[in-house]
Design a protein around this nucleic acid. Structure first.
Lengths: 160, 160
DNA sequence: TATTGTTATACTCTATAACTATA
DNA sequence: TATAGTTATAGAGTATAACAATA
């Protein structure tokens, strides 16, 4: 435990807010770097991090998901998904397919190129993360994952 | 430790990359939510999260920092600082002051309104963080802070 | 009338490149 | 020539609001 953390914990209750705010800064700072690394590594592939995330989300679905499903999973408004899917379609990585049972619904399927891109993206993603997480050993990563998971669960009560 | 984490740790070495990538997702996901909460809570104050961060950074400096100092501290290019300081000046929270010793240099000072805004912002920021971090007890927060600090130190060798 | 997705629009955050003023 | 900051521009990511098509 570093000095500031230790001091905060043993000090007045007002300091609880301070350590919490500091935690927020650390979280955002680490994410900024991670995002930069991802963008840099994915750029040669012609895919943005948000598109990559969408691609993975689609691939994790049993059947081609609806636009609304994707919006919910990505925790964004449906309008944001429209733009992302547009990008994937332009690059020939995914395609919109009409739902025969409900003509309002649009489903999104991966193309072959999309599946191919996924493995290249996995490499890029892991490299970006590995770089950032290098200072942590395996046990520390597991610990970090566990702590973050607790946060995720709390804010996404509907079993993510 | 959750099931996925445990499985990843005890499985083939290839899984080390998988858990690392998952960690990246968790980190980015938590940050997205935190950022949203911050923006929502700061909006009534007419200040964006990045402006708030700049305001705090200025307040942590012993003497009015140069634009270049701020860029380095915020880990952004100098051009990005220009826009942020423009925003603070428009709102009367900070002002540019010429450096008498070097006419190329611009220093940034907080105005009285800026100092006043800082306490309101502190409240907003803590509220946003407290909300997100509610699932963690004090010890877990310290643990998380320690882990994130290790990451920060690694990527910012020049003592941040 | 409610739902699904889209068009239209806007804003935050950040980057690169070219330029200006100063040293 | 090197440095500090800016103007100009671009693009990623995301939001709200109004609307069309369908149910």
């Amino acid at each position: 435990m570093d000095a500031r953390t230790a001091a905060a914990l043993t000090a007045a209750p007002d300091e609880a807010g301070a350590i919490t705010a500091r935690l927020a800064d650390q979280l955002l700072g680490v994410s900024r770097r991670l995002g930069r690394a991802q963008r840099r590594l994915m750029e040669p592939l012609g895919i943005t991090p948000a598109q990559a995330r969408l691609l993975r989300t689609i691939s994790h679905c049993e059947e081609p998901p609806r636009m609304a499903d994707l919006a919910q999973r990505l925790e964004v408004v449906p309008r944001a998904v429209t733009t992302l899917v547009d990008g994937l379609e332009e690059r020939g990585l995914a395609r919109r397919v009409p739902d025969p049972d409900n003509r309002r619904v649009v489903r999104v399927e991966l193309c072959e190129e999309g599946r191919a891109a996924l493995s290249a993206l996995r490499t890029a993603r892991r490299e970006a993360a590995a770089d950032l997480l290098a200072p942590l050993d395996t046990e520390q990563r597991a610990q970090l994952s566990e702590l973050l998971d607790a946060l995720h669960g709390a804010c996404t009560p509907s079993g993510a």
